[in-house]
Design a protein around this nucleic acid. Structure first.
Lengths: 227, 227
DNA sequence: GTATTATGAATGAACG
DNA sequence: CGTTCATTCATAATAC
């Protein structure tokens, strides 16, 4: 409705401003054209905003743990804007000593230790390396789940009730779909700061095609609504 | 700002085009102004391009890994023609939008929404993907329990400390409790300085076809490195 | 250097 | 409401 410069003022593209005794060609934009331009830019702004929102939402779930109580990680979870590494997640890796102690405790048969027990274990293990209660908790959870899964895989329908503690059956393999699309993140906000330098070199940067701006925005100028 | 054509750069904002026996005021853009405009649009185009690329990359994993874990629908393309499917039963996975909304609601402080509230939330979230009231209920329950657990882990602060001089990592807190993990957005919208008036009311009109925007100005030159 | 495995971490759902 | 289970994902570790 506002993107059409229908002969208002006569074309409105190039205007001839007659100086005093000379002809000066200047680029002229009518209000309508200006409005269209603004609209176009606003559309960009909206798109960018929405994309940014989407990006935030998508990354939120994964980066929600922006930083953990990781001890072996020296770099801060949130580096200065100068650095590109925003997500510096490194998972805890138990030291051999910690692993041995954990397995010993697990082998005692006391599955799912209480919170108090977790604290004690954590305190004990902290002497052999950085660790937190969450690590211990997760370790026991995973250990338990893993044992259970192994057993289930070994005896799907077998009546055998005796399971060795060290039963390793390579017959079962899980087709793990190791898909890692996060390896390469094409987005580089830093790079896209001001990449439009090549256009600057052009001396003549305003072609008669200025009207195209309208074309982009006003794809459907008439009959937009039913009725 | 763009709409405000002030005579900066010595080009003159308003030009007086003398018609035949009358004075016609028209908006005039100097080359500098035009260049600024082009730059801004170009910036938007670049940002949009990058964001779209990134978004596609991010979404690619969701679409390809489990087939359809985003919508949780039956439209799984990887289903064998034979008919036997790999138990499409997959636990509900909130879409980024849903997650964002949920977190927002949770952040409001109204823990444990009523049944009626659950219904409302479910209805709202259903606009962004398949979801059921049970999912919302479970989500809130889990969320609450998780927060509580985090507190519990910190609350019992034992005043007794064994080693502190040797501890290089005194901070053991979890930044996860803090909301909005994205504090800093490298995207500098500020440079663009686009008013973007009432675009918010439009809702989401982000269409893939909008990609053509990248060719507003630089449609002819800079045909990429290929060729 | 790439592919595979092992396993820590996250989370929806269920149990009590 | 708190705890636990089952499943999945990402990544350190490892094999190739």
């Amino acid at each position: 409705e506002l993107g059409e410069e229908r002969g208002e003022g006569g074309g409105g593209g190039e205007g001839e401003a007659m100086g005093e005794g000379g002809v000066l060609y200047v680029k002229v934009m009518t209000d309508e054209q200006m409005e269209v331009l603004r609209k176009q830019i606003s559309i960009y702004a909206t798109i960018c905003e929405q994309l940014v929102e989407m990006h935030k939402a998508v990354m939120a779930q994964r980066d929600s743990i922006a930083g953990m109580r990781l001890g072996n990680l020296y770099c801060d979870p949130l580096m200065t804007p100068g650095g590109h590494k925003i997500t510096a997640r490194q998972r805890w890796t138990p030291t051999p000593m910690q692993l041995q102690i954990l397995e010993s405790i697990f082998d005692q048969g006391n599955g799912t230790p209480s919170k108090q027990k977790i604290k004690e274990i954590t305190l004990e293990l902290s002497q052999h390396g950085q660790i937190s209660e969450t690590n211990v908790y997760n370790w026991f959870q995973n250990r338990r789940a893993r044992s259970k899964r192994k057993q289930t895989a070994v005896l799907p329908n077998n009546t055998e009730s005796e399971i060795e503690a060290d039963d390793e059956s390579p017959t079962e393999k899980k087709p793990k779909a190791t898909n890692s699309p996060y390896k390469n993140m094409p987005l580089r906000m830093d790079d896209l700061s001001i990449p439009c330098t090549e256009m600057n070199s052009e001396g003549r940067h305003l072609e008669p095609e200025t009207n195209r701006i309208q074309g982009i925005y006003a794809s459907d100028n008439s009959s937009k609504s039913s009725g």
